[in-house]
């Protein structure tokens, strides 16, 4: 199959992605570093990292739509929740194998998102945010009441089939999924399509005035975002083993996703990953000092301070730090 590999390489390097050798090196280092983690850290830390990986997947999903095009989605927990509930219902109630239920969950998420949220892309700004928030609240109220025999009502669904055994395997699965999603999103955003989405976030009228159908572009961004959210949600559900409406269709879930993106840096791939790991580990580090609810208070306050200090997130803080260091050297 030299033809396929060659085509792939030419497509990747020749197409709009503009890949350079240092990109391959940095990605290889990043992937190797993540895969070596089980050798370096303990099991407890690995479990924390699994949560960070899933949060990073959701954050990347949010960023592809909201971070780029500026259409702030308050409904991402809804998408993640559809993915989780679909695979849970299929495996537990209808005996589907996970190999079938997860792809179906992704499709259902894309389809569900399409029906519910696509009309909302016609409207702008706060209105879009509000509709997505209302959709999430709607699901929270609907899921427990409609067909509780399927959804398990407020108690949710438990004893989902596990995909892996042991902390290390759970970690490998989560980290590989995250890396695949990140790499895919990175490649996609380096194409001209990524540029166009970024342009929509700055001036949607001008994008239309450049002859591009913004509705089609936004729909595409939305579908990719929904597919990633559904994929992450489905795998996450199997990792958790138990899902409840409160664990998904909740404003705190939304908060974590958005904060991860903003703290890390919207409109980048590394940003949401850094943000997710930072926030998850911050919560863990605070645990010994603040065992109770105070943690969430401090956690929220730190998030707000970083956001007020630099709305472009940690990525921008690091970049300006590097620039300053370089400036000091010369």
């Amino acid at each position: 199959m030299p033809g396929l590999a060659q085509t792939l390489f030419i497509t990747a390097s020749g197409a709009g992605m503009n890949l350079r050798p240092h990109h391959f090196i940095l990605w290889a280092l990043f992937i190797a570093g993540m895969l070596l983690m089980p050798e370096l850290v303990g099991r407890g830390t690995l479990r924390t990292m699994v949560f960070a990986c899933y949060l990073a997947i959701f954050a990347i999903s949010w960023d592809i739509l909201s971070g780029r095009t500026g259409y702030i989605s308050f409904g991402h927990p809804f998408l993640v929740g559809i993915g989780a509930y679909t695979t849970a219902i299929l495996t537990r109630r209808y005996g589907f194998p996970v190999e079938a239920s997860i792809p179906i969950a992704v499709l259902v998420t894309m389809f569900g998102g399409l029906i519910v949220l696509l009309p909302a892309l016609r409207i702008k700004g706060s209105y879009f945010a509000l509709v997505t928030l209302a959709v999430m609240e709607l699901m929270y109220q609907l899921v427990p009441v409609v067909r509780p025999d399927l959804t398990g009502g407020t108690r949710g669904i438990s004893r989902l089939p596990a995909l892996t055994r042991g902390a290390e395997n759970g970690y490998y699965l989560a980290v590989c999924l995250m890396l695949a999603v990140a790499l895919f999103a990175w490649l996609l955003m380096r194409t001209r399509l990524g540029t166009a989405l970024w342009a929509i976030g700055q001036n949607e009228e001008s994008v239309r005035g450049s002859g591009l159908s913004t509705t089609r572009l936004k729909s595409f961004a939305f579908l990719v975002s929904a597919a990633i959210a559904g994929l992450g949600g489905a795998f996450y559900a199997h990792y958790l083993g138990t899902i409840t409406p409160r664990a998904f269709f909740d404003i705190n879930v939304l908060f974590q996703i958005i904060v991860a993106v903003l703290i890390g840096g919207a409109g980048t791939i590394l940003g949401p990953i850094i943000g997710a790991f930072f926030m998850v580990f911050l919560l863990e580090w605070l645990r010994p000092f603040l065992p109770g609810q105070e943690r969430f208070f401090v956690y929220g306050a730190i998030a707000l301070l970083i956001y007020m200090y630099q709305p472009k997130g940690i990525m921008a803080i690091i970049e300006s730090g590097i620039t300053r260091l370089r400036g000091a050297r010369t």
């Binding site: 497509t11 197409a15 194409t191 166009a196 450049s210």
Partner: peptide, 14 residues
């Protein structure tokens, strides 16, 4: 952005 054709396929693979 002005040069792009109005086709998702062309935007991604072109």
């Amino acid at each position: 952005v002005g040069l792009m054709p109005d086709s998702l396929r062309a935007m991604i693979f072109g």
